[in-house]
Simulated scan of single mutants.
Amino acid sequence: MSDGAGDRRRVVVRRADRPGDLGWVVMVHGEVYARQFGWNTDFEALVAQVVAGYAAGHDPAREAAWIAEVDGARAGCVLLVDGGGEGLAKLRVLVVTPAARGLGLGTRLVGDALAFAREAGYRRVTLWTTGNLTSARRIYEHFGFALADEEPVHRFGHDLVGQNWTLALDADPAAR
C-alpha cells in the first residue's frame, strides 16, 4: 500500500471458503447497489443466482471466489467461473464496500482472479457490467479488458447501459 491509510490497515485477500462468505456476497451487493444507485432487489436476485450456481457445484480447479478483508472484516469480493465455452471464463460479482474503497482491493481481487484464470488454462475472460460503474471500468481497463459491445437495457429498476468486456489472456500479465 502506498498511501498512509493503507499502511495502517490490515488487508487480506483470501478464498471465499468460510461459512457466511457466499451469503455475504449476495447481501453486500443488495445493500451497496441499493444505497449507491437505487437498484431494486432484481439485482440482488441476479447475484443470488450467480452465487447459488457457484455454490451448487463449482470445479475448484477451474472456478474460485475471493473475499477481501480489511482489519478482519469482509470488504470486497469477486468470482471467476467457467464461461461455458472453449477456454472461456467469466469474472462475476466484483464489489468493494464504500468504506474500503481507495485501498486497491478491487485491483487485487481482479488480479488474483486473472492469475487463477491463467493457471487454470483459460484463454479468455469476459464480464458483463453497466456503464455507470466507472471505478470498476477503470480496473478492467487497467488489466487490458476491452469493451466488446454495449446496449441500453432496463434492469434493476433503471435505464442503464449494459456492457460486455473481454480480455485475451495471452497478453503478458507482467506488463500490467
Rank of each mutant, 00 (worst) to 15 (best):
R118F: 01
Y140P: 09
G131K: 00
P98N: 06
L133I: 10
R138W: 04
A113M: 11
G121K: 06
Y122T: 03
F145H: 04
R138Q: 14
G131M: 05
Y140S: 00
F143N: 07
L109Y: 03
A117N: 13
H154Q: 11
Y140A: 06
D112W: 12
A117L: 07
L147G: 01
V161A: 05
F156S: 06
L94D: 01
D149P: 03
T130W: 07
T126K: 12
Q163E: 12
R123Q: 12
R137N: 09
R124H: 15
V110E: 02
P98L: 01
V153P: 04
L91A: 11
Q163T: 06
G144Q: 03
F156R: 03
R124L: 14
V110H: 05
V125A: 12
G162Q: 02
V93N: 14
D112T: 15
E151S: 15
T130A: 10
G157W: 00
T166A: 13
F143S: 12
A115W: 05
A120W: 10
T130P: 02
V153H: 05
L94F: 08
A113E: 00
L103N: 03
R118L: 08
I139C: 04
V110W: 07
V125P: 08
R123N: 13
A117E: 10
F143R: 08
T129Y: 03
T134H: 15
G162S: 06
G111E: 05
H154T: 12
R137I: 15
Y122A: 12
A117K: 03
G111A: 04
A148C: 08
Q163S: 00
L103Q: 02
D159Q: 08
N132L: 11
R123C: 03
D149H: 07
A113V: 11
L160P: 01
